[in-house]
């Protein structure tokens, strides 16, 4: 198992190298160093300022090794990423580590409660629906799920802001302030919207997974032995449904860190999701590559964790 983990992690290293290359290619396919400079300097900047900006920030060098072997951007891209020297943002020259530090707090404050509340809730609800399968509760549940799934998250946000914040005045409409006495005021609504908007598809997915297990032979055996329904659900069904659940859960973990793009943007929460989107829209290569690099590292680790948790949850899965 340890050998497996080490092997997987070293493959992960290769993946990260690939991601860095792929990002470099994709980014400079979409944007040129001139575009980066233009975004940094603003609409009215004259061509001379753009040229100067490129010189000051090292974007005047050739991109590829075959253009210049000793001084090209691809190599220095790898060099700075692999030495964890993230440097400064192209948009505003702020150290990127500082950006990540200030953005991670709000992002995690939003996604972690969303995850910790949302997951058990949807697993519980889907268990309930699975217990009452083939009854009106199940049918109602499915219809409610589909109803919930057919509504765009944009509508959930606008609806919540209108109803809860504007009409009922429970929380501010949007914004953020990290001082402890008010921070939950700002986060409650986005957390609520995040959970409600995803609960439909989650419950539906877990219901399918549970029904799958409910129909298996060992469940019937257990029931024949006289096990209570609750015990069957907890002991047999939930346990055996762990693989699909784990896949969903562990893979979601790195994305807790990268934040929720739509919620952050609409509720004005200065997190990492909003930071990444701004980096994409603002041609901020230095910030974007760091976010992607860190995301890829987390992702690789999460992948390995998924496989390990498979084998822990289901002894039939062998890791070699």
């Amino acid at each position: 198992m340890l050998a497996y983990v080490i092997r997987r992690l070293s493959y992960g290293g290769v993946v990260v190298l690939g991601v860095l290359f792929f990002l470099f290619v994709v980014f400079f396919w979409v944007a040129t160093p001139d575009d980066i400079a233009r975004r940094a300097l603003g609409e009215k900047a004259p061509p001379e300022a753009i040229e100067q900006w490129k010189i000051n920030h090292g974007y005047d060098r050739p991109l590829w090794p075959w253009q210049s072997l000793e001084d090209n951007m691809l190599f220095s891209h790898y060099e700075s990423m692999l030495t964890f020297d993230f440097g400064r943002s192209d948009a505003d020259d702020v150290p990127i580590l500082e950006k990540i530090r200030t953005g991670a707090g709000p992002s995690l404050a939003l996604t972690v409660p969303m995850f910790l509340l949302g997951l058990p809730l949807s697993v519980m609800l889907s268990l309930v629906v699975a217990v009452f399968r083939e009854t009106y509760v199940d049918r109602m549940g499915v219809v409610l799920c589909v109803l919930g799934m057919s509504v765009s998250i944009l509508l959930y946000i606008i609806g919540a802001q209108f109803l809860i914040a504007k009409l009922l005045r429970w929380f501010p409409i949007s914004g953020f302030d990290p001082s402890p006495q008010v921070v939950m005021r700002f986060l409650s609504l986005p957390i609520l919207v995040g959970i409600v908007s995803s609960i439909g598809s989650n419950v539906r997915f877990y219901r399918t997974v549970f029904l799958e297990e409910v129909h298996r032979d060992f469940v019937r055996t257990a029931r024949a032995k006289g096990c209570g329904e609750a015990r069957i659900m907890a002991r047999h069904v939930l346990r055996n449904a762990m693989i699909p659940i784990l896949t969903q859960v562990v893979i979601a973990i790195p994305f807790l860190f990268t934040g929720s793009l739509v919620l952050e943007s609409f509720f004005g929460i200065p997190g990492l999701g909003a930071l990444t989107v701004e980096a994409i829209q603002g041609n901020d290569f230095a910030t974007l590559r760091t976010m992607v690099f860190v995301g890829a590292l987390l992702f690789v680790v999460a992948q390995v964790l998924t496989d390990v948790s498979y084998s822990l949850a289901d002894p039939r899965v062998r890791l070699e």
Binding site: Y11, G12, V14, V15, V16, G18, V19, F22, L23, V26, F27, W29, V30, L261, T276, V277, I280, L288, M291, V292, G295, A296, F299, V300, Q303
Partner: peptide, 22 residues
């Protein structure tokens, strides 16, 4: 695993913009 992880680690929006532009 390599292809999957590489794609999954890229921000979807960037990929979409790049592909659509291409």
């Amino acid at each position: 695993f390599f292809v999957m992880s590489t794609l999954a680690s890229m921000p979807t929006l960037l990929l979409l913009i790049a592909l659509i532009m291409a």
